[in-house]
Design a binder for these strands. Structure first.
Lengths: 144, 144
DNA sequence: CAGTATCCATGTGGATACTG
DNA sequence: CAGTATCCACATGGATACTG
């Protein structure tokens, strides 16, 4: 993966091809949308929290530190709508609702781990690059 | 990948572990930040555009449809700072500047393709789930 | 308990005039 | 040409009062 220079497929010559890859006309749901979904601050955390066992609303609110009630609701709805979360209502008093990640969601999470792996692999390199960049800019700012 | 139920690692029992995975204390640059970077609307398009050949500022502005001058500059700076883009200045008049994706960036793009692949694989399933969800909600709204 | 509705602060991003 | 600076519109998201 790292020795070859073929990360971008050979047939990918123009940016229009990239659009096909990323915005994709044939897909009912474009990759861009999926990306936006998982890029949200909370979605993945919810998927992880509900991966191994069903979780209740308040339980998630406690588990996921810093999430607001509003954002929890919104994210849960979106995930449910996309079929990434299964919502089960027990018609008791008081009500009990459980959320659980679907198999599809777990696969998405697994795919997401490739990004995480990249991060881990190159993290210090990126950090070093940032230091160099910032120092260079600071130096320039000085002698002006 | 799809027959096993181990998308979430066995040792991942609590959400704190997930935090370690996603927000990661040991990483100088947390995965979350990388995710935000590539989730931006433009970064990946720029990486793709500069993958096979160096591109000039105005060239990118034309290639990447819909990007504003401001966002192009901002995204280029961020990518350069992170070491994902190499910026070369030719001190001519008028100035000429070229951007080119680094090897690291191409690897990240490749990793990102796993997400795209997930999308393609499950796209119609997600779309179907959305239809069902929307219809259900519409039905509920009616008999109220 | 599991939400919904509302208000408000902040950030993100577009358009564009200006400059070395 | 390759940007920077400025202004502004809008979406995102937090806090929280209220409800079935």
């Amino acid at each position: 993966m790292s020795q070859r220079n073929t990360a971008v497929p050979e047939q990918l010559k123009t940016l229009e091809d990239a659009d096909l890859l990323l915005e994709s006309g044939e897909c009912p749901v474009p990759p861009r949308e999926i990306l936006d979904r998982i890029a949200g601050k909370w979605a993945i955390l919810i998927v992880v929290a509900t991966a191994r066992q069903p979780r209740r609303f308040t339980e998630l609110e406690r588990l996921i530190e810093g999430i607001s009630r509003r954002m929890l609701t919104l994210t849960l709805r979106n995930l449910e709508r996309d079929g990434l979360l299964e919502r089960t209502v027990y018609p008791t008093v008081p009500p009990k609702v459980e959320y659980r990640a679907t198999e599809m969601a777990l696969e998405l999470y697994e795919a997401m781990l490739t990004i995480t792996n990249w991060s881990r692999k190159h993290s210090s390199c990126v950090a070093a690059s940032r230091r160099r960049y910032d120092e260079r800019r600071a130096a320039e700012a000085e002698h002006i």
